[in-house]
Computed example of a mutant assay.
Amino acid sequence: MQKPIEAVPGGTRPQPDRRRLSYAAPMRRALLLLILLCAAGGAAAQPADGLDYDPPIAVAAVLDGRTVSLADGTEVRLSALDIPAGKWRDIARSVLAGLLQGRSVRPAWLAPVDRHGRALAQLQRDDGVWIAEELLARGLARVDAGGDDPAPALASLLVTEAEARAAGRGLWGDPAWAVRPAETLGRGDLDRFQIVEGQVLQAMVLRGRAYLNFGTDQRQDFTVTAEPGVVRLVAGDGQDLLALQGRRIRVRGWLDWSGGPHIGLVRMEQIERLD
């Protein structure tokens, strides 16, 4: 979809009191150590992944490849994951059951529990295993960066996905779920989550809406768009979509048709710069 994108001089230095120094130096060292320990403790209190976990709760059942039921009846949908339909969902369910059977987890909630007792969350097993990361490491899922997960968490998950992809693990050995070159997209790739790579030939904002065009044929080219609210949010974070012109990027999201194959951007974490 192609759019027009718009010291005291002269004095005698006093001699130090050696007895006082013998006490002062250890005291200074102790104070410095205390400061360092406090600083380290403060840093540890801030999760590197931006996730805030609740106390552990037992897992009652695994419902599918990314949904579990907790002992209190809450159904947790693992966030930031896309698991392709078919055999990969069956395999993911089996693996998830093996990971969580008879275990407890600590949820990091990303949305309130709805009236049906369901909510999106990240889960950490009682021994510290990050469940989403484990599924990604085994090549059983892809990162869906379009949700409410903190950016540091998504950055970590994307690294894990990249390692699995490079090793050809799991679904990454299946051509049906390979990263798609932008120029090869067709109608057969629509209506599903896709990861697309290509060069942004034109980037422009028109009436507040951003367009990243990957081709010159307005009937067939791949385009990424961002609504005005997203453009303002991105700019508020000090990022510039227009700076992507001429760059190779990888973008992920739901692929539909809007004057050509199209992905709607909701946050910058959906985009990875490749150059």
Rank of each mutant, 00 (worst) to 15 (best):
R252F: 13
Y23R: 15
L135C: 09
R77I: 15
V76I: 15
H262L: 13
W130I: 09
L265S: 11
V251S: 01
R106A: 10
A40D: 04
V159S: 07
P9M: 06
A182V: 01
A44T: 09
G168T: 05
V159W: 01
G170K: 05
R125P: 01
S258I: 00
D52F: 06
Q239V: 02
A182Y: 06
A39T: 08
W88M: 01
L70G: 08
S69M: 14
Q218K: 10
W177P: 10
D240I: 08
R232N: 07
A141W: 05
D237A: 12
D240Q: 13
W109V: 09
L265D: 13
Q2G: 08
G264V: 14
Q245K: 13
W130Q: 01
G86D: 03
F214M: 07
G65I: 00
H262C: 02
L96N: 03
V234D: 04
L31F: 09
G86R: 07
E133P: 03
A85T: 05
I91M: 11
F214Q: 06
M268R: 11
Q245P: 12
P181Y: 01
A44F: 14
G128W: 07
L158V: 00
P150E: 01
L140E: 00
A137C: 00
T74W: 06
D64Q: 08
V266I: 06
P175E: 02
V76T: 12
D49K: 00
L99V: 03
R232L: 14
A155T: 08
G173R: 07
V251E: 08
E163K: 14
G173D: 15
A145V: 02
Q218W: 15
I91H: 11
V159E: 15
V205M: 10
S104R: 07
G173S: 14
G128A: 12
G86E: 03
A71T: 05
N213D: 13
L185N: 04
L21Y: 03
R169N: 11
L99S: 10
V230R: 07
M268V: 14
P261E: 04
D275P: 10
W130N: 01
R273G: 08
V129D: 11
V205W: 03
V143H: 02
R118Q: 14
L158P: 01
K3V: 15
E75M: 09
R232P: 05
A43E: 07
A210Y: 11
P152H: 05
L212C: 09
R118V: 11
E133D: 14
E134A: 15
E133K: 13
G10K: 09
M27S: 11
D144E: 11
A162E: 13
A92M: 15
T225F: 13
L242N: 00
W257Y: 15
